[in-house]
Nucleic acid binder design. Structure first.
Lengths: 211, 211
DNA sequence: CTTCTATATTGACAGTGTCCATATTTACCC
DNA sequence: GGGTAAATATGGACACTGTCAATATAGAAG
């Protein structure tokens, strides 16, 4: 190859965009979102400070690209919740979604924080929107398959309520907002189990008379 | 006063700390969190770029101070929900808390976003912790006064679930996360009303047999 | 009046995002 | 193959940013 200059460094990186995303996520995990700077990544990859601009025009675009990768990961994990995180395959789709989100958020808290800060992302980006819609559609399918024929609340209401509760819990847990009020166990149950029980009770409540 | 130099500018501002908070919140509301920079505020107040350091050592401290002000405002609003936002005084304490949070978050979305980003704040700051605890205690009181004698879930579980749902809904609404999936009306009910109904049903569920 | 502390000033440093003109490489078309 | 156009990388520049240090002034307390 003659793409090597005097210093033994290739002029073209050749695979910069995916490399940027990879390093960016690594920095995000280990040092937080503030440490994810375009120049830092360029330095890390031995490339000019302005090279990433060809692939991500602005920092917002970079974060958006990162979020897309993360949503794909979460989506994949929620579709087929693997066994190695203690999630047997015969669980309901709803519980798989619940556990996958919980697992992903607790394993990659900085990613989770970033993924849902759409104010810091390109909210108009269609890639982001379609990825959210995939998750939302899957949640709606879970609603359609639970709650009986005449649920007390509409599928949409229950879906929004359920996702809101899950997301709110994740955010406050990750940010440490009400850490003081949190106990690891509630009524002798692991906290997340108690919340899922309540959540299940909430979403499957048929009419209020069926016990 | 002889505290005036040649350019007609006082050496000491005299009231810098509260002024900083005031301008900071104004900038936050109108231009977003990124625009809130120490130097910008100093410029705005006609003061040296390093003057704020005497009152807020770091930007994190500044944001923490701002959040404390906001929590005080929210706390005040939730204690006595004023009439001018369509909230009659005879409502239950829980609904007052619910509506106050909803109103504050929708009126000041940027403030709400900042208040709960404890990763960007001094989470060890006691002022922040005590303010959150005030809200959490008030919520727990609401739980104690609802749900009957033998609720299906503990007060703590219900409190966390309720707050999680409310907070998660606020965040996703403000960030525009699932805006596509949101409709203004659900089953002919305003969206927030439907969610509150579900939430009330959730928190007041006595045993599952009482209808 | 003197002294001590709080507050404000100027200057500096390293880091950042973003734009620009330039250089190189790759891809594609003839 | 050769030549042209597009993609990609470079280095420089500008205006910001937070934070630190040394200095100067104001106010309060003795």
């Amino acid at each position: 190859m003659d793409t090597v200059n005097i210093e033994g460094r290739a002029y073209h990186h050749g695979d910069l965009k995916p490399s940027l995303l990879e390093v960016a996520l690594q920095v995000l995990d280990t040092e937080g979102l503030e440490a994810v700077s375009i120049r830092r990544l360029a330095r890390e990859l031995g490339v000019a400070h302005s090279a990433p601009a060809n692939h991500f025009a602005t920092r917002k675009d970079l974060l958006t690209g990162m979020a897309e990768v993360c949503f794909d990961e979460l989506s994949l994990g929620s579709a087929a919740c693997p066994d190695d995180v203690g999630c047997p395959r015969d669980e309901s789709a709803l519980k798989a979604l619940y556990r996958a989100t919980l697992n992903y958020g607790l394993r990659y808290p900085n990613r989770y924080r970033m993924m849902f800060r759409w104010g810091d992302l390109n909210a108009e980006d269609t890639g982001l929107q379609t990825r959210i819609e995939i998750l939302y559609r899957r949640l709606m399918q879970c609603m359609a398959s639970t709650g009986g024929d005449t649920p007390l609340f509409s599928n949409e209401t229950r879906a929004i309520a359920l996702w809101s509760m899950l997301h709110g819990y994740m955010v406050m847990r990750i940010e440490g907002t009400i850490q003081g009020g949190f106990h690891d166990e509630i009524n002798g149950m692991p906290r997340e189990e108690a919340l899922f029980a309540l959540l299940t009770h909430l979403t499957s409540e048929p009419t209020g008379f069926a016990g």
